[in-house]
Design a protein around this nucleic acid. Structure first.
Ligand SMILES: [Zn+2]
Ligand SMILES: [Zn+2]
Ligand SMILES: [Zn+2]
Ligand SMILES: [Zn+2]
Lengths: 166, 166
DNA sequence: GTTGACCTGTGTCTAGGACACAGGTGTAGG
DNA sequence: CCTACACCTGTGTCCTAGACACAGGTCAAC
């Protein structure tokens, strides 16, 4: 099996296979005739595992850690649990930030609907952006993350509703 | 004003100022005595603008486009509106993906609570990951994004509730 | 003059591949 | 046997948005 066949089998690009080869996750043997890399059944299994782990939110570094532990004959399960817990926490964090940003973007775009294009005067660069940011700095004096917390609560409710719906 | 003072004024790191200088967004004059970069009032204004735009979700490239247009004397408002609309759509997309991933991560971590650590057998790498992914592949046969759509609807409802709460 | 704290510009690094490119391989036709 | 041409391969570089390391310069105190 060469890169093309392996990548076709798992519905990924050859570049992804090359990448995991480059960082040492796959160990093909080098065909001495043409210098091409020949992948075996073990590489196929490893690549499947890598893709599964990546799809679950593990970083490439995490996968490397797990693979290394497994290669040494140790059970990587503890690392798996710990890393997943960490990644999930990080995910929540970014999720929260994205939610706040998304709301801000929507608010900006909506508020711009009633504002005409600003002429290119010298004392501003783009009034739309500058005005919205200024207004945001001056307004919302007591917004100490309590509304964010409410947002997160509603989020979670919605998500649980969805999850239990299956 | 040198990097330190400028960065201190806007509560950012000197590296950020250096970065925007490196890519040409700021144009300090070079002090011939010591080679240090001297920033003026215009740089301060531009940097404020850059930070506002970045905080609204524009990419650095977007900001460059807007700045270039403004420098040419043209009104960048149209570009601002168009780019923001695009960034908002992208944001929704990533938001949806993050939501799905987050649910998957939670489901995995929960399901692992009732499973013991797998011994390091030769035919698997980490049973936790492989079993969960397999189960996921085999289950959910008719999940053609309709449930995801429902999720998005609930998301939007929750968000609107939050937004209107202010 | 010298010590030492601080400051500066430049080069390199990050994650996860995507992309460009020069050259090799294989096969069909002549 | 040789060539044309499509496809394939490995390697090097690029992307975000800055963060970090580091050698050397600057400035005030002593
Ligand atoms: Zn004005
Ligand atoms: Zn404008
Ligand atoms: Zn087993
Ligand atoms: Zn395991």
């Amino acid at each position: 099996m060469r890169v093309a066949e392996l990548s076709e089998r798992l519905a990924i690009t050859p570049d992804t296979v090359r990448f995991y080869t480059r960082i040492g996750f796959l160990r093909p043997r080098k065909n001495p005739d043409n210098g091409y890399k020949e992948y075996g059944a073990e590489d196929l299994q490893r690549l499947k595992f890598i893709l599964s782990a990546r799809g679950l939110g593990f970083s490439v570094d995490d996968v490397g850690q797990i693979l290394r532990e497994a290669d040494q004959g140790k059970s990587p399960c503890h690392a798996t649990r710990t890393l997943m817990a960490t990644r999930l926490r990080e995910s929540e964090q970014r999720f929260r930030e994205m939610l706040a940003l998304r709301n801000k973007m929507q608010a900006a775009l909506t508020s711009w609907e009633t504002v005409p294009d600003c002429p290119p005067s010298g004392h501003t660069i783009c009034h739309l952006i500058e005005a919205f940011s200024e207004q945001e700095w001056s307004a919302e004096p007591g917004l100490d993350s309590s509304t964010e917390m409410d947002a997160m609560k509603d989020e979670t409710e919605a998500m649980n509703k969805v999850t239990s719906k299956r």
